[in-house]
């Protein structure tokens, strides 16, 4: 039984997860600033600064509308940063993945470990924003606590997609396009800053096919306590994104590492 468990990527991935945790704990002073300060500033500037000109969206003040979007988006950013730049450094500059392959670890374990780690960073970031948003009185439902497991799923989706890029990138510069051409546009049109129903029909369809839209909607539903059956579909969409990306990333990582 144990020997079967030991061959699953989650088992091997947990080792890489622990390694990344140990590395972050050693460097916590560097890490802590980015984690809390940036979403905090965004919340104050956009939510209260911009929000005072915008007025309400449905029953929500602009800041209340914005906060769940920030939770989802920052879960996305934190997971992606680590699984792109962070993982690429570990792989190419420090040869850490090469060293792991000299142990019973295999490429699929490495991908799984980085995805689990990205998901964990997403949860930590979501917890930080949730805490700040709660202090500002922007969270109206105790169901908001469920945004933490949802953030794990969001982090897994984006970390897995990022690992496809990491496994195939030939330079670290290749990561930049992923941010400027994919993540940032998605950040602006996935219901983070304004409701999607103002967009043209086609744009809405595209937005819903991208993972941040269901992610943000899911978090908003939980933070405001307005549940809909659609949430199940959104969850399923995110799980599908994560599973397919994990599979594809593992394939490319094997091709890259085992030559």
């Amino acid at each position: 039984m144990l020997s079967v468990v030991r061959r699953t990527p989650v088992w091997g991935g947990a080792k890489l997860w622990q390694r990344n945790r140990d590395a972050v704990i050693r460097a916590w002073k560097v890490e802590i600033g980015g984690l809390f300060m940036e979403p905090f500033i965004l919340l104050v500037a956009m939510g209260f600064g911009l929000g005072s000109y915008v007025g309400n969206i449905g029953d929500l003040t602009y800041a209340q509308f914005l906060a769940p979007g920030i939770i989802a988006s920052y879960a996305m950013f934190h997971a992606t940063f680590d699984a792109t730049y962070g993982a690429y450094m570990r792989m190419e500059s420090h040869h850490i993945f090469d060293a792991m392959l000299f142990t019973p670890m295999e490429p699929q374990d490495i991908v799984m470990g980085e995805v689990m780690w990205g998901a964990t960073r997403a949860v930590i970031s979501a917890a930080a924003v949730l805490f700040a948003a709660t202090l500002f009185g922007l969270i109206t439902s105790p169901l908001a606590l469920l945004t933490l497991p949802v953030a794990y799923l969001i982090g897994a989706v984006f970390a897995a997609m990022a690992m496809i890029l990491t496994a195939t990138a030939t330079t670290i510069g290749a990561m930049n396009n992923f941010f400027t051409l994919f993540l940032l546009p998605m950040f602006y049109v996935s219901g983070t800053f304004f409701p999607l129903d103002r967009l043209p029909d086609l744009a809405q369809k595209i937005a819903w096919a991208l993972p941040l839209t269901p992610a943000a909607s899911l978090v908003r539903g939980l933070a405001t306590g307005e549940l809909t059956p659609w949430m199940l579909a959104w969850t399923a969409e995110l799980i599908a994104f994560a599973a397919v990306s994990l599979f594809v990333a593992s394939h490319f990582m094997r091709k890259r590492l085992i030559k």
């Binding site: 590395a23 460097a27 420090h94 040869h95």
Partner: peptide, 10 residues
């Protein structure tokens, strides 16, 4: 291995 693969984060 020939390449130095020590972990600089630890």
């Amino acid at each position: 291995s020939q390449a130095d693969s020590l972990d600089p984060d630890l």
